[in-house]
Write a protein that binds this DNA or RNA. Structure first.
Length: 256
DNA sequence: GCGACAG
DNA sequence: ATCTTGTCGC
């Protein structure tokens, strides 16, 4: 098992000595275990097909972090894909479960996002995640992980590139270019607005790239980011702000 | 060997 | 991710 030369081995906050190779069957505790889990789940990803026949509930997912600690707020906001009106919101407070390591991002947010998803009255038909899907070193970004974990079709929408090379797409809304990694098209660089920086769309699970782009465009009639992402971002930030304010107020009373 | 590196 | 108000421009 030669793997003692990994420079990015993060040794999570409270990493106990891995006397045995546990963790792969639960929450991984080391970067090595996390990567092994990704490699094990990767074959379960479905990257073809049009996706759900009729999407009635589209969910946007996002997480906001407190500046200091590892406290966080994870939000899932469900929208009607036709009217883009909010149907339901679910937000949970929690803490980061893993240090931020490029490529292992999902292990940080997934537990809290799943908790938020469990708080919904009705499971959504499609997930729009803040981050990459197949556009990942091991083709298993957050969107893939959430899709496989929940069984719900998912799409990854990143604000910046993570992996791959691409040509700048034409400046008009709807224009796209391939995001290529090792000869594979792992995503699309998509313009959601005229003359606005493109977003990075990749398949998460349960549909193909064309379908993913179609959904992202439909969800972004006025702004660069899909309305799902915008709503989720607003929701988790608000929750974190209120939690912080409540915490400060409580501390103030204590010191009185 | 030296950077780069989703959020 | 987070630090961060007003401001220039369409």
């Amino acid at each position: 098992m030669p793997n003692a030369t990994d420079p990015t081995h993060p040794a999570p906050a409270s990493a106990p000595e891995p006397a045995a190779d546990n963790g792969v069957d639960g929450r991984p505790e080391t970067a090595e275990q996390a990567r092994a889990l990704q490699d094990r789940l990767r074959p379960l990803v479905v990257t073809t097909g049009p996706g759900p026949a009729d999407v009635r509930r589209v969910a946007g997912l996002d997480v906001a972090y407190a500046e200091d600690s590892d406290r966080l707020a994870a939000a899932v906001v469900v929208l009607d894909p036709d009217t883009l009106q909010v149907l339901e919101r679910s937000v949970v407070l929690g803490h980061a479960r893993f240090p931020y390591v490029p490529g292992l991002f999902a292990f940080r947010e997934l537990p809290s996002l799943v908790e938020a998803l469990d708080g919904l009255s009705v499971p959504p038909d499609l997930l729009v995640c803040d981050g990459q899907g197949l556009a990942h070193p091991r083709r298993f970004g957050l969107a893939c992980h959430l899709g496989v974990h929940t069984g719900i079709p998912s799409i990854g929408v990143g604000k910046t590139a993570f992996v791959g090379t691409y040509d700048t797409p034409p400046p008009h809304r709807g224009a796209a270019s391939d995001l290529v990694l090792d000869g594979d098209v792992v995503g699309a660089v998509l313009r959601t607005q005229d003359n606005v920086k493109p977003v990075f769309v990749s398949v998460g699970h349960g549909l193909d790239l064309a379908a993913a782009c179609r959904h992202v465009l439909a969800l972004s009639p006025h702004f660069r980011l899909p309305e799902t992402t915008r709503q989720a971002d607003t929701a988790c930030r608000a929750a974190l702000a209120q939690a912080t304010a409540a915490g400060l107020a409580r501390d103030a009373v204590r010191s009185d």
